[in-house]
Design a binder for these strands. Structure first.
Lengths: 343, 343
DNA sequence: GCGGATTGTTAGAGCGCTCTACTTTTCGCA
DNA sequence: TGCGAAAAGTAGAGCGCTCTAACAATCCGC
């Protein structure tokens, strides 16, 4: 057990104090603080004046306890190191601000157990709903969470009537990536996948399906949505006699990790091997990296997630799955393969 | 006014329900949940059993209201897009876990007004203390916040008896950067600064002092801790007849933005111009970027911040400012200037 | 100038928990 | 077997707010 912090600064003023100072009842102060139309303008001014003199701040815990809501949405970000989630968050935040909701952030540090704990904590905080950005926990678990609190998942689809989803069409995205590489002339493509990260399975199977359709040689290397996974996947390839002509990373981090490893191994990109990522994150956009990637409008994803959550709160009971169509962004890490593919 | 989410799923079980099921009193359940030594092992097992059968989750709001603490530390991250803050967060999280504290995250999106709002919100949530990572709000304001709730600032020093600080020595860091460049032979160095970001002023004045000591030509271009600021600072330089031989970015984002602009402008790094950043973030470490930078042990910063906050809670009243000594990490964006500096 | 609608205000219960003070049970030991 | 102390358990007030129902003050038309 920890000995918790003891906050023993000056006692914070309560509703009661404000009421006393303004010479009205507690209830009226409460109404004024929530600016109800039922308070006379004069009393309202008086009360706000008194409140600011005491620098009164409502105690959220008490308010929540009494009213059964918090006006707060819990947001689980799977990985703070992934610039894509920062982009999604921007969208979430903008929408939340417009719709007058507060956001409570947590992160599972890209580990399922960490996520469970974080979600648990948000529920204990009695958030009005949760938005899970790229969660790793199982669909079953998400379904169970949705029984307790309205839930929206971003970046992955979950089939459960109570769970709403916002994602891009990962299968399409993978198809677009393969199409791009094939049209450049590539015939041997490796996908370093996202393990059991959100949407990774769809990208993987989309990749396999597309490769089969186009009749090119395809292979999947098990990975994870991290730079390190990309690096180690690429190293696996480097140990072989010959490299594939193109690598499709499960996301930009993976692609950049792979790119890094290829460069370290003395290979040139895209001359020796083409690399394409997914997410079109800030990372991909940098000139020095200039990574070809698949864009999935993170801001729009975030915005939709908040709207969906609120519409669920408004009484909707049927599931909504919103799918955004991803788009290719061609930059400098993908090009025609060399005529002679031998190293 | 928003119409808030209505959470009308099945009623959540309360302490009372657990007590009824286990056939004991409410108080005993409370003790068991906080695993007090005063509960017999048998009853404890019984109670935990009942709790799990009902999938009971304590209502934090009620607990907080009754006990006047939350076991939660509020964390303000200034910018989710900055990989450095993600690194600091890792340290925070690890320490919080060890010390059995929960973390409540918010972000000010790198805007002072956003930060104020976020801090306000954490205080309303009655967190036991706040950790401000690279805050932009004024020192005066931070002092005022510290009167309300124990406060630790990361990445910047604030002179106020109630505020504890953890930072690296920015003046030293700037000195190290200049020393590095000068020893490579550079004689004209531009610093694109961090505007009023945390620690930016110290880096700027450290830079100026060092440049003067070494007797090299120095200039400061007003910036911000963002990639965009770096890019625009570099563009300013590109419009001139001749480039400086070296640029010192206020942080890695700035440096990389500048690097990007130079490359786009057809200049080579480090052949035409050397670039060094600050933070040694994941970005700097990537082979393709391989940015020389100044390391400030973000993980250690985060860890210390949590420890400092708890020690303050334990009754300490004098201020502690912990300064970490930064270190040079030499990579491939800094080198000797060309003999003929004319473009 | 009076009844009824409208507007403004308040008392008081209750949200789910903790904590103090108290009661009951169990145990060790003469 | 009996007694005091330690261990185990409980009653009940109260944390700071909201919300329902009731009450007081003002307004309107005729």
């Amino acid at each position: 057990m920890t000995e918790s912090l003891v906050v023993q600064r000056q006692r914070r003023p309560t509703l009661e104090d404000v009421a006393a100072r303004a010479g009205v009842s507690r209830a009226l102060v409460s109404l004024a603080m929530n600016d109800s139309p039922r308070v006379a303008a004069a009393s309202k001014a008086l009360i706000l004046q008194a409140a600011s003199e005491l620098s009164y701040r409502p105690n959220l815990a008490a308010r929540n306890l009494a009213s059964h809501r918090t006006g707060t949405i819990g947001v689980l970000l799977n990985d703070l190191h992934n610039p894509f989630v920062a982009d999604v968050f921007d969208g979430l935040h903008a929408a939340a601000e417009d719709l007058d909701q507060k956001l409570l952030l947590t992160t599972g540090r890209n580990i399922a157990a960490g996520e469970r704990e974080a979600i648990e904590s948000m529920i204990s905080h009695r958030v009005d709903g949760v938005i899970l950005v790229g969660p790793r926990v199982s669909s079953g678990e998400i379904g169970r969470i949705a029984n307790v609190v309205p839930t929206v998942v971003v970046g992955r689809t979950v089939r459960s009537p109570r769970v709403d989803c916002v994602a891009n069409n990962d299968a399409d995205g993978a198809w677009i990536a393969v199409d791009h590489l094939v049209s450049l002339g590539h015939e041997s493509i490796v996908h370093i996948d996202g393990g059991d990260g959100a949407g990774a399975r769809a990208r993987r199977s989309g990749f396999e399906k597309a490769a089969q359709m186009f009749g090119v040689s395809a292979e999947v290397i098990r990975g994870d949505y991290t730079e390190e996974a990309g690096r180690s996947g690429a190293r696996t390839l480097l140990r072989r006699r010959r490299l594939p002509t193109a690598v499709f990373g499960a996301n930009d981090l993976v692609a950049i990790g792979a790119l890094d490893a290829f460069l370290d191994g003395g290979h040139r990109v895209p001359e020796d091997v083409s690399v394409i990522g997914y997410d079109n994150s800030a990372l991909a956009r940098m000139s020095r990296l200039s990574l070809s990637s698949i864009d999935q409008s993170p801001g729009a994803l975030g915005r939709s997630a908040v709207e969906l959550l609120l519409s669920r709160g408004a009484g909707r009971t049927e599931q909504i799955i919103e799918l955004i169509t991803p788009a290719l962004v061609h930059r400098r890490t993908t090009a025609h393969p060399r005529a002679d593919p031998a190293a």
